[in-house]
Write a protein that binds this DNA or RNA. Structure first.
Length: 500
RNA sequence: GGGGGUAUAGCUCAGUCGGUAGAGCAUCGGCCUUUUAAGCCGCUGGUCCUAGGUUCGAAUCCUAGUGCCCCCA
């Protein structure tokens, strides 16, 4: 026990431990037989408008419980506020109304303690709905003092490391994560209404695939073999299209062994959906419809306010090709040389973007796009026709095989979604894998491995299909006006804390 | 990987030119039966991130390191 009294003990905690020790003398200080029958917000909605005469007639007996966030002792009577998952409710405790000794005990309870109280409702002079307690008890002692009530908790590091404290203190933080849940619920509903089947595919894969990214590696002891955390569920979901489900989706974590930033966490949540007998245009339409409906349902308006800018999710999103975007944002470029490797390479050099021997015109185009266009795409915009060179799983365009039938959706200068008509020609796919494998052999850790089973699956025949991936975290950032991905992850990745 | 910012009481923050460490809130003690950041009186509470260095003297200046934040690659 003594060993648990950790290094950051201080006088405030020691005082509370003594109070807990005293409670232990009198029995179990963590009772589990208090039955709450009302939430703070329910009471506000049901009885907030009733006057005191009505409340006295009704004599509503309630049992409330939660964390004591405010404690105001005024001699023989006190006001406290209990916070539960719905909100806060005030409770009045009067010495002479409570059972013998309870009020004296209460004076020793601390802000942060978990309490239960039973009593009837009334309004104070200033009109606040309040429970007049006939009974009050301590349900769980809090040993650590909470941040101060007015300034609250603002220290970013503590907000991320001790999210539980952030959630206790900051309603805005609680609201971010409620909204995150509503976004995902809406998305599920949208897909279910289109008869999509939710599935779960492996997180641990022998051959990581489905994206261009570096994977995390782990090891299976019993089988004595390496395994990789998935970078995308894509190939497995398309195996299920081959299997005949026709419409499947998965909302789950991906893992990418890359840098950490305000836009990147090593693990992040992606929604991927695949629909047979559809093409990438259908997915652009559905994505627009989904985001429109989501904004209405989750935020109550189609206008998304993000970091001082406003975007209208109610309007159709402009669609332009990658080459059109480059031309539009680079007046003066030579439009006749948009696929001239030498021209593009020189341009990249000027931009300071890497140019390697293996890079073709398509790869160089995307570098120029990333450097000169991406950040400028503020309003929701679909960029279409990505080069085949950088789209190893996408179907080539029938009229222009340099590009694929692919799109990415940009909002506020960031990629939010990526979709395309799927490559279902097994021989073309095998050829693309071979090209990726060559890059891999040349030292590109992000290049895809050749997935023989995936080719075998395609050889059984995959119907014409289109798929999409939506970055959930970035979407939640937009909907909650959060500047950093860490603000929308309950437990963002941080360097480990050292406990001495 | 590079650059910038930041780190002081439980929390939020001051700290002047290098000269004994400060405030508000919280805690603790006293008063107070309708408060709303309740009020009044009193007392506590510090590894000034860490390790070196300069100096008679360092929260303050220098060097290195660490965490977090931001920007860039």
């Amino acid at each position: 026990m003594a060993d648990d009294r950790t290094q950051d003990e201080n006088r405030l905690i020691a005082e509370r431990r003594q109070k807990l020790d005293a409670l232990r003398e009198r029995g179990n200080p963590f009772p589990n037989d208090f039955h709450r029958n009302a939430l703070a917000d329910e009471l506000q909605h049901m009885y907030g408008a009733h006057d005191n005469d009505t409340l006295a007639e009704e004599h509503v007996e309630v049992a409330v419980a939660g964390r004591m966030m405010v404690k105001r002792v005024m001699g023989k009577a006190s006001f406290i506020k209990l916070q539960d998952r719905s909100g806060q409710i005030q409770v009045r405790l009067e010495r002479d109304r409570l059972p013998e000794g309870v009020y004296q005990d209460f004076k020793k309870w601390d802000v942060g303690d978990i309490l239960g109280a039973r009593g009837s409702l009334f309004h104070t002079r200033t009109g606040e709905l309040t429970v007049m307690a006939d009974e009050a008890l301590l349900l769980a002692k809090s040993l650590r003092p909470l941040p101060e009530k007015w300034a609250g908790l603002t220290d970013q590091e503590m907000r991320y490391r001790q999210r539980y404290v952030d959630l206790i203190i900051n309603e805005s933080s609680r609201e971010v994560f409620r909204k995150r849940s509503r976004i995902i619920t809406y998305m599920r509903g949208f897909l279910e209404s289109l008869d999509f089947l939710e599935v779960e595919t492996p997180m641990m894969q022998v051959t990581p695939g489905g994206a261009i990214a570096r994977p995390f590696r782990t090891h299976h002891n019993a089988l004595d073999m390496p395994l990789f955390l998935r970078i995308a569920p894509e190939l497995n979901l398309k195996r299920l299209i081959v299997g005949g489900f026709e419409r499947v989706y998965e909302i789950n974590r991906n893992f990418r062994n890359e840098g950490v930033s305000t836009q990147h966490n090593p693990e992040f949540t992606m929604m991927e959906a695949y629909r047979a007998y559809a093409d990438f245009n259908d997915w652009m339409d559905s994505t627009e419809a989904m985001l429109h409906g989501m904004a209405d349902a989750v935020n109550g308006t189609t206008i998304i306010s993000y970091q001082g800018e406003e975007y209208d999710f109610g309007k159709p999103f402009p669609r332009l090709t990658l080459e059109e975007a480059i031309v539009q944002h680079n007046p003066g470029c030579d439009t006749s040389k948009m696929r001239d490797r030498d021209y593009l390479a020189a341009w990249c050099e000027k931009l300071g973007a890497p140019v390697k021997d293996g890079y073709g015109a398509g790869k160089l185009q995307t570098e120029i796009f990333d450097e000169t266009c991406e950040a400028k795409l503020r309003e929701p915009t679909f960029i279409t026709q990505y080069p085949a060179e950088v789209s190893p799983l996408a179907r080539k365009n029938d009229d222009d095989p340099f590009v694929t039938d692919r799109f990415e959706l940009f909002i506020a200068g960031r990629e939010i979604a990526n979709g395309f008509s799927e490559l279902n020609d097994p021989e073309d796919q095998a050829e693309r894998f071979r090209a990726q494998a060559a890059n891999r052999d040349a030292g590109d850790h992000e290049a895809m491995a050749f997935d023989h089973d995936y080719i075998r699956a395609l050889e059984y025949g995959m119907p014409p299909t289109a798929g999409i991936g939506v970055g959930i975290d970035r979407l939640v950032m937009l909907f909650t006006d959060s500047p950093s991905i860490r603000d929308v992850l309950l437990f963002p990745h941080l360097r480990p804390e050292v406990f001495e």
